[in-house]
Design a binder for these strands. Structure first.
Lengths: 252, 252
DNA sequence: TGAATAGTGTCTATAAGACAATATCCC
DNA sequence: GGGATATTGTCTTATAGACACTATTCA
């Protein structure tokens, strides 16, 4: 505030020592929509602390990679998935968020269609290999209120998320709900070709509320983000719907 | 990808050494709207590298403060402003963004009304004290296209922004434009009481395009975010407009 | 009184919700 | 044919843009 402090504050970067001041990690929220619910990939911890607790796939940032590259690497190495939609979410840096050390984590979220959201085969007899699971997400708030969300395991049992990972997960859901209104993010959760009904279900699951069918169809078809393929779905016990494909807009 | 790599990847956090892996800084984009333009607070560098170049007010994160606290501290210490709207923007972590060392910066943006956007008095005779200036922002793109923006000094001369600060500034503008549509962020740029015309001007400057007056009035009055004070502006050469005040919504 | 902007009322165009009618598949 | 969902069309309602008209201040 005083000229003196201003004077000493300024050269901080220039005069910094080689010693770095924090540990920087990246955590990735990998989401999909399937069976009328949101799913996230979690790791079960096999070591202390919080042994048995569940965490987002994450890791430390290396000195030879950018934050984006770290997120891609972690997704590929820990979940075996690449080439998906991946975007930075938020950076969590509370002092005591990790009781072991001062760790700042740059959270990312990724979207993948249900077919690619497959867990890597885990040898059930192996010891000391972390368990990767698909956890079902339950959102205890409506709209874009925000806040932590709950995750449940295969048997419907609640999973304990370590550290602030329930908050990170909650923020990913909130961001996804917000994005849905003005960006074509739903396509990231579907295969190449899909029906309008499937796209609507994606939107409904993400928003956690039903949508008006007529209005949804009109909006989507008027957006010029969809392209009819001419083909139709097969082997359904009702009139087959036409298949559409996402088309990147050229001009507005 | 292989079970082995998965096995070695997992304990990274747990087995990390005390040595931290990065330098973490915080940069703050302090914005206001005045005289029909957007303004940002910049520092002129007084040391190498990039001597004479302009940078956002920033500094290293201390071990005893959260990221938010660091942003507040930097704003208070370097610009002398506190108690304003402040929100995390994005974290920039490209490897070579700072040629001196691997530095990751968590960017924040802050909003303040034009009356409080006052530069701290600088002694013009002092040497080695950095110069703080209010730079006018020119946005070379429309809508929410995004990209770097230009800053000009008091004489209209273009200012050279160091590192990736033009990108950070551009992202702050993009975020602000997006926020405007669905959050009452315009009030942060006005004094306690204001007219509808002043609020509309704020929106127009941020969006960089004129707005329909009738529609804007209707939307604002229907949002239940405004409260009429009953008072009117004074000393204007036309019919004085009623003064309004922002009221936090109770229920929806 | 004239200039300038505030504020109100009305009309029209567009988008959303509701709903009916028809089309197409599998069984 | 019966059941189920797709697709089209129409009607109603809400909102945005355009515009005309009145109101209030200072010079």
């Amino acid at each position: 505030m005083s000229p003196t402090s201003a004077k000493t504050d300024i050269p901080l970067k220039a005069s910094q020592t080689a010693a770095d001041n924090a540990t920087v990690a990246v955590d990735v929220v990998l989401l999909t929509v399937d069976k009328g619910a949101l799913w996230v990939t979690l790791y079960q911890r096999i070591r202390e602390p919080h042994i048995g607790g569940y965490s987002l796939p994450g890791g430390l940032v290396r000195s030879d990679e950018s934050l984006d590259e770290a997120a891609h690497r972690i997704l590929a190495a820990k979940v075996g998935i690449s080439g998906v939609f991946l975007e930075q979410l938020y950076t969590f840096g509370d002092i005591h968020r990790d009781p072991r050390s001062r760790t700042i984590t740059v959270a990312y979220y990724a979207l993948v269609d249900a077919n690619r959201f497959r867990m890597p085969p885990i040898d059930p007899t192996a010891i000391d290999i972390p368990k990767v699971i698909a956890a079902r997400i339950e959102v205890p708030w409506t709209g874009e209120t925000g806040g932590p969300v709950d995750a449940t395991g295969p048997e419907g049992e609640p999973l304990e998320l370590v550290l602030d990972h329930a908050d990170i997960l909650g923020l990913a859901i909130k961001r996804l709900r917000g994005k849905l209104d003005y960006t074509p993010v739903g396509f990231q959760l579907l295969p190449e070709e899909f029906t309008l009904r499937e796209l609507q279900t994606i939107h409904e699951v993400i928003r956690g509320e039903p949508l008006n069918k007529d209005s949804f169809r009109r909006r989507m078809l008027a957006s010029h983000e969809l392209e009819a393929t001419g083909a139709h779905e097969r082997n359904v016990a009702y009139r087959p719907a036409e298949l559409y494909r996402f088309c990147r807009r050229s001009a507005t």
